[in-house]
Structure formats: structure tokens, C-alpha cells
């Protein structure tokens, strides 16, 4: 564990609390892509199958994994049951088959072994790298977003960005090289946030509303 990874994980945690806060205080999930949230559940469940094998890393690791699975499922409940009327599927139109299919193929080509743990792990890494796309697509379609929603996306972007210095740090301080699958997918994932990040820094953090140029 190093400073960058810890900060990244805390940023990831913060993003979930921001999202829960947004849904519960506005009593609405308007502006949140249900499809992205479904993809996160799939990502966490397929990646953390090692929980079932009791291959223990640390209490931190186990608690965080359980939290990510639990909170992501809870968010689906909030969106689909509790605040269902505020969820507008007509603007959440990204076709997630186009993400799930290629990620499944990639995980069959690039993985660390043809086992029931490794293939889903690899799949989850590829899927996470593109899971935000339905959310960004929705933002693009509506052209604007509530400020709290942009804080949520920015916290996710910060989490991904912080994993990059984490890998650089690990490369120089540990002698077990680089996890190519995690790093390549991670860089792709971070790149997807660049456009959003630019508008977030130049508009939202200057006190303006998040609006895309016409």
C-alpha cells in the first residue's frame, strides 16, 4: 500500500458516498446512468470472486471488496425500486452489449490463466475501463449535469488517475514488475475521463454549471 493507492481508494469510496448522498438528499436518481451502475455491479462481483476462496490479502482489502459489492447493489436497489419514478431510461440509451461482448472476448485472449478466477478477473478489469461510458454518453446527450453528479464522476476519475502514480511507484519499489492487463486497461480508463475532467476543472470548480458547449 502506498500513498497514491490509498488516496485513490479513498477517492473511490468518496465517489460512492457522493452518489448515495445525491440520490438520498434530492430523492432522485436523475442524471445517473442505471447502465453504468449495473456494469459496476458486474465488475465488482466478477473481480472479487477470490473472496469465495478465502485467499486473504488484508482486512482492508476484504472490507473494501465487500463494501464495493454491497454498495453497488444497494445503488441498483435505490434506482430500480426506491426512486424508480425518477429514473428516465429514455436518455440512458448506450448499448452495453457493445461493451460486454468485446470485454468477454478480450478476457479470453488476455488473462493469467484459463481458470474460473482468472477469466472473470480479467473480464472485470476490461469492463471497468469502459463502465463509465453509458454515464458519459448520457451527459453528452443531455448536455448538462447537476453539480453533485459531476463531483461523483470527478471522484471516480481521480481514483483512476491516482492508480497511475501508484503503479509507477510500485514499479520502482517492488521487484515484481508491472501487471500489464491492469495497467493498460487502467490507462485507457483514465483517458476516458480527460474530456470530462477538463470541463470539470474549467467550469464546475470555477463555480459554473456543468454545460457542454453547444
Amino acid at each position: 500500500m502506498n500513498f497514491f493507492r490509498l488516496l485513490g481508494d479513498l477517492s473511490h469510496l468518496a465517489s460512492i458516498f457522493i452518489l448515495l448522498h445525491k440520490i438520498q438528499t434530492t430523492r432522485s436518481c436523475r442524471g445517473i446512468s442505471f447502465k453504468t451502475q449495473v456494469l459496476y455491479v458486474v465488475v465488482f462481483v466478477t473481480r472479487y470472486l477470490d473472496l469465495l476462496t478465502f485467499q486473504f490479502h488484508s482486512i482492508y482489502n476484504t472490507v473494501m471488496k465487500l463494501f464495493f459489492i454491497g454498495s453497488s447493489i444497494y445503488i441498483l436497489y435505490l434506482m430500480r425500486v426506491r426512486f424508480r419514478p425518477t429514473n428516465d431510461p429514455s436518455i440512458d440509451t448506450f448499448r452495453i452489449e457493445y461493451l460486454l461482448g468485446p470485454c468477454a472476448v478480450l478476457s479470453l485472449i488476455f488473462n493469467y490463466g484459463y481458470t474460473w478466477l482468472e477469466i472473470p478477473w480479467s473480464f472485470s478489469i476490461f469492463l471497468e475501463s469502459v463502465a463509465i461510458l453509458p454515464q458519459l454518453f448520457m451527459l453528452q446527450r443531455t448536455g448538462e449535469a447537476e453539480t453533485i453528479t459531476t463531483h461523483y464522476i470527478a471522484a471516480l476519475g481521480a481514483y483512476r488517475a491516482l492508480y497511475i502514480p501508484n503503479w509507477i511507484f510500485r514499479y520502482f519499489t517492488e521487484d515484481n514488475g508491472v501487471d500489464a492487463i491492469a495497467v493498460v486497461a487502467g490507462i485507457v480508463q483514465t483517458a476516458l475521463y480527460v474530456d470530462f475532467g477538463w470541463i470539470y476543472f474549467t467550469k464546475v470548480l470555477q463555480g459554473q454549471k456543468f454545460e457542454l458547449p453547444a
Binding site: 464495493f68 492508480y163 510500485r170 517492488e174 515484481n176 492487463i181
Partner: peptide
Amino acid sequence: EAKENGKDEL
């Protein structure tokens, strides 16, 4: 050679 240190990350 592929390294799997991503496994201890979240």
C-alpha cells in the same frame, strides 16, 4: 513475463 500484482489492488 506477465506479472499479477494487480491482484492485491481493488
